[in-house]
Design a protein around this nucleic acid. Structure first.
Lengths: 101, 101
DNA sequence: AGGATAGGCAAGCCGTCACTTGCCTGTCAA
DNA sequence: TTGACAGGCAAGTGACGGCTTGCCTATCCT
């Protein structure tokens, strides 16, 4: 798994609303397993998805560098990593009101 | 054209590499017309696209609130607006090294 | 050992999206 | 006023993405 992820992968990963919800879930509670994420997606976000669907979403997020995984026994924990998002602001600086043009 | 744009529209707009290149082009030189953007996409980014293709891309970007348009005679100028990007960081704070956990 | 649990692999379906093609509207200059 | 220029609308096509289904591997607990 390459440390340097392509910028397009980050945007592609963020393009799907389910994947954004997964990031929300990991923001609130980090280092969850695949099944934990499945359960919380259905119980808290009214999303009924197959385990494989969530697994594929997690693969996309990992390829984008937005999450890292850690295997421990038969469990695989998913850790949120928001550092790739910083590249967005370096590319297009956000102009807030009161800033110099 | 609503001022409040859906968050999903922003990510959908950023998902396409051509649209990201258009944002780059407007970052470097703001308030360009459709034809100017077409020319600069082909001459500076080796992208050969139809005028309609670029027009549709601009429509997506405008719907996402990332660009605003201003009609003047038969010209239509496109102005970059990066303020919708700020919502990304408010949603998932970027943790840089040296920050408190 | 053996069943239950956590996860992976691969093929197939269907909707969405990017792009093209063709034609139409509005504006400016000679 | 007529042609050239800037842009818009709409239908059609091909490819990619999200999701499912079915089956397989690995780890843990009696």
């Amino acid at each position: 798994m390459p440390i340097l992820t392509r910028m397009g992968d980050v945007f592609k990963a963020l393009a799907d609303p389910t994947r954004r919800t997964i990031l929300d879930e990991l923001t609130e509670r980090d280092d969850q397993t695949l099944f934990e994420i499945c359960v919380r997606l259905t119980s808290r976000h009214q999303l009924s998805l197959t385990r494989q669907a969530v697994s594929q979403h997690l693969a996309v997020l990992e390829e984008a560098g937005l999450i890292t995984t850690r295997k421990q026994g038969r469990y695989k924990f998913h850790h949120l990593d928001t550092t790739p998002l910083a590249a967005i602001f370096e590319r297009w600086p956000v102009t807030r009101k009161g800033q110099a043009p």
